[in-house]
Design a binder for these strands. Structure first.
Lengths: 186, 186
DNA sequence: CAACTCTTTGAGTGAACACTCTAATTTGAG
DNA sequence: CTCAAATTAGAGTGTTCACTCAAAGAGTTG
């Protein structure tokens, strides 16, 4: 293995970038700060990455993937998916915030990122809908999709609020929502 | 009036800043870009504003106030309030985006702004709840509040999506939501 | 018209930024 | 052990940023 050291440095750079994003957002995520955390100089950074954007996109891609704890799951119930979503927001508020910021601000400098967020949302609606029709055989796919779009809108709205107001009880409110609309449960 | 010209320039600066914040977020909102839109030089900017932050805060304050089309209304129904909210998002997507960006980014450098957003949301929940108990006398205030928090979360989630995906039919989805949960209507 | 204040200009400041380049060093395969 | 490739250091590039300042210009008031 001829580039073991490089791979280790790569990992340290990504760790540093992720941590910075977590601590202070995109603004504090400078090359200098990343290199300090990784214990290297700027030259080493550019030996392993083409640009800062490449690192940002890598971390953002992590965030988008992380929103989906189990993208391949075929046996999840809606309640499982909701619980996984809430867990993500609770344990990874930083990535969640980045996800929403990217969605809102049009994707840093890159339009492709915004498109990816839109596509990702559509896939999630589809997954929730599949789970919902498994639970509720009386619903048409169209009706189930409308209901899941509404559910996801509410989840996103609650998440937005929990990111703004640290004292907000996200899981409690989501539980309440599920009990208001009992049909969402299995 | 000894400072008429200054007031006009001030307005042009705020217009430019608002547009920039909406189009490209805080990153694109530079002094140079603001001055270009306002048709002035940097020196004029600093004759009228202490700092860039002052302009950002002014625009944000605008956005927060603008989210409430009729804060004093006492006779509105929930459907009226929902319709007003949708109209705001449709007609003022710029301010709406700013509002969400501020909520998400933790209030720029100023903690007071974040607190203001949180307080504003609480007031809106209260107004929706008052309207809901007027419509549905069978509900307790607590039950009505839970329902209105869920409704507002869904509205915020839908709005977020419409700001991300220009093709999203916000009013249609909100209509669907209201018909799914018929109790929201009068 | 004269005095004064408000407004605008436009060059200029230093700091921070992403990024480059060359030369030195380390490393692992042969 | 040798040597080429991978890795690193560290000074340096040009650009952009928010912001300053002295001086010229414009408009209001007495």
């Amino acid at each position: 293995m001829r580039n073991r050291a490089g791979l280790e440095t790569r990992a340290r750079i990504l760790d540093g970038a992720r941590g910075l994003l977590s601590d202070g957002g995109l603004d504090r995520m400078t090359i200098k700060a990343i290199c300090e955390r990784a214990g290297i100089r700027a030259g080493s950074f550019y030996n392993l990455f083409e640009s800062k954007e490449e690192v940002v996109l890598a971390v953002v891609r992590e965030a988008i993937v992380a929103v989906d704890p189990d993208p391949a799951g075929e046996s999840d119930t809606v309640a499982d998916l909701v619980s996984a979503y809430v867990s993500f927001i609770e344990t990874q508020p930083v990535l969640a915030r980045v996800y929403f910021l990217v969605a809102l601000s049009g994707g840093l400098t890159d339009e492709k990122i915004r498109a990816r967020v839109v596509r990702h949302h559509a896939e999630r609606v589809s997954r929730f809908t599949s789970a919902h029709v498994r639970d509720r055989l009386d619903l048409s796919r169209e009706a189930a999709e409308q209901r899941m779009e509404a559910l996801l809108a509410a989840l996103n709205g609650y998440s937005l609020q929990s990111l703004t107001d640290p004292g907000f009880d996200l899981r409690g409110h989501v539980e309440t929502l599920l009990s208001l609309e009992a049909g969402f449960r299995t």
